[in-house]
């Protein structure tokens, strides 16, 4: 599946992460984080893991991290993708 619509989840509060997903021809993951040097790789691995588990192979993912734990990152990414897909379904349904 690919991301067909922009969607967001999370916040910029400390301990949270604001996830933005957008349409893209390839799979792109961008990470901004105060702990990028320590946990950038781990964050990217988790993001790929969630994307794969949801069957997403195309899309741009941006993580504006504020020191979120891994479980928070996974939850926010999951919600963002879910919103992107759901909104799209709803729009398609609405246009018919």
């Amino acid at each position: 599946m690919k991301i067909l619509k922009k969607a967001q989840a999370g916040t910029l509060e400390s301990g949270d992460v604001l996830v933005t997903v957008k349409p893209s021809d390839t799979l792109m993951i961008e990470i901004e984080s105060p702990v990028a040097r320590q946990f950038g790789d781990a964050m990217e691995r988790s993001a790929r893991d969630v994307l794969e588990s949801m069957g997403i192979y195309e899309g741009a993912v941006h993580l504006a991290d504020q020191g979120a734990l891994d479980c928070t990152l996974r939850a926010r990414l999951h919600t963002a993708i879910h919103r992107a897909l759901q909104d799209y379904d709803a729009d398609v349904a609405g246009s018919l």
Partner: peptide
């Protein structure tokens, strides 16, 4: 509501 449900669930599974 969707975000909180997912966040709480992930927290329960992990923490």
């Amino acid at each position: 509501k969707d975000a909180a449900r997912e966040l709480v669930s992930q927290a329960l599974l992990t923490l």
